[in-house]
Structure formats: structure tokens, C-alpha cells
Simulated scan of single mutants.
Amino acid sequence: MIRTVRALLLALLLPVLLAGCGTEKAGTGTTDPGPAGPDRTELDARVRASQIAPELVYVTEAAGFTVAQQSVGVYGGDGFSAAYWSQETGGQIQLYSDRGTMTAQSCAEPSPGAHADCERDGPRWYRTGSGQHEYLLPEKGDVVVRLVADSATVDRAVLLDAAKAVHRPGNVELAALFPTPAPAATAPVERGDLPPVGDGAPDNGVGTSG
């Protein structure tokens, strides 16, 4: 009799147990999706607060190099700049992104009166001069991304790999570059010792007993 009751209870509970197991997502071990990260609108607002145009933000990757957070900032009018540094070699790759176009002439003459050796390398340009070398990448929307490094500390193969890896950042990458929103401007603090008329100097007068 007892065995019959136990078998009946198990038969009644089995569908409930199976239904409960079916609600857990495969591979996660939990049904909690966790907190959502910032969306693109919020991230673009962070970028604009740094005086940078969101469409000019580009990132790259190079083996052994990590971005230096303190180097992230505006370049030119509303362009973007970031430095990638190798702890092992001490080498540094500077990334610049700004509005513009690139031709054989502008590559060979980076500024009035200046001359550099420039050659075409696939969809990119490779330029050398003054102990430095760089890859220049014309992007869509009249944007040019430059990767600049010291020739003695970063060889061309490493710089080329970084050039091939240049891309627009995803939300996770953008959040890492701009981790917190820029602080909002605060209103001036009202001081109670400023007189309503005159030059605004504090009233330091003393009474008749002073």
C-alpha cells in the first residue's frame, strides 16, 4: 500500500519537475540575465560630452598592446585619439581619427614644405619619415585613421597588424573607452554674505560694539 502511494505521488510530481527544468536557459546555469549595459544612445552622449564626434571613434588591436585610458581624448576639432602601449617592449602606437581624405600627394606632403616617403599598401598608405612610420586608412564618410609609431620600437609588421584590425567599436569597447558620463555643469553657489548692490565684495563691516 505504501509503495502504491509513493508511486502515485511521484507520477503527479514528475510533470511539474520537468516543466521547471524546461524554464532554465541552456548553458547559463541561471535564468537571471544580469544587469543590462548602457545602450548606444547613452554611449554616444558620453563621447559627445568629450567634444568628440561619435562617428570618428575607431579602435584597433595589436598583440601585447593595451589602450592607455588616460590617452583617450579629442583630436583636432572633434576627432579622436588614443595610445596603445606594450608593457613588454615599451613600444607605443598612437591612433588618430579625423575628417579628411588621402591621396598620393597629401600622403607624401603631410604639411606645407614637408616631404615624406609614402607608398600604397593595399587599401592603406604607408608613410615614413623623421624616425617614425605610420599607416593611414581612408574610411567611409571622408574619415582618415592614422596609426603612428616609432620605427625603433614598433616594427612594420606589428603596425600593419594593428592597421588591419582597425574598426568601429562595439558597445562594450566604447563603454571601456568612456566608462562614465562627463560630470554635468553645476550652478554657481549662492553666497549669503554678498550684498545685493555694489561691486559684490563680501560685507566685512563691524557693528557699533566692534
Rank of each mutant, 00 (worst) to 15 (best):
140 K>D: 15
100 G>H: 03
112 P>N: 02
143 V>C: 01
27 G>I: 05
183 P>Y: 08
110 P>L: 11
118 C>Y: 03
125 W>K: 13
129 G>P: 01
149 A>G: 03
27 G>A: 07
190 E>F: 08
189 V>I: 15
54 P>T: 05
179 P>R: 01
150 D>M: 03
129 G>W: 09
207 G>C: 10
183 P>I: 04
159 L>M: 04
69 Q>K: 10
139 E>H: 10
124 R>C: 00
5 V>R: 15
204 N>A: 09
157 A>C: 06
89 T>W: 06
84 Y>H: 04
117 D>A: 12
55 E>Y: 01
36 A>T: 15
162 A>W: 04
67 V>C: 10
40 R>V: 07
121 D>Y: 09
55 E>K: 13
183 P>R: 06
112 P>F: 09
210 G>C: 12
74 V>T: 15
174 L>V: 12
65 F>A: 11
60 T>D: 06
199 D>I: 01
207 G>V: 03
112 P>K: 07
133 H>E: 04
171 N>H: 07
48 R>W: 01
181 P>Q: 11
147 L>G: 10
206 V>A: 14
2 I>M: 12
46 R>E: 02
56 L>D: 06
15 P>N: 06
145 V>P: 02
143 V>L: 09
104 A>W: 00
189 V>Q: 15
208 T>S: 15
156 R>P: 08
155 D>M: 12
72 V>P: 06
173 E>I: 11
195 P>Q: 07
113 G>L: 05
108 A>W: 07
104 A>N: 12
6 R>L: 15
26 A>F: 06
105 Q>P: 01
210 G>V: 03
192 G>K: 14
115 H>M: 13
128 T>I: 04
20 G>Q: 14
69 Q>V: 04
26 A>R: 14
90 G>N: 06
164 K>L: 11
198 G>Q: 04
169 P>V: 02
184 A>P: 00
66 T>H: 05
91 G>Q: 05
11 A>P: 01
164 K>V: 04
111 S>R: 10
67 V>D: 10
153 T>F: 09
65 F>K: 07
111 S>Q: 14
76 G>C: 05
179 P>T: 02
189 V>S: 12
163 A>H: 09
23 T>K: 13
78 D>F: 08
4 T>G: 13
145 V>Q: 07
109 E>G: 08
47 V>Q: 11
47 V>F: 09
181 P>H: 09
33 P>G: 03
17 L>A: 15
178 F>N: 06
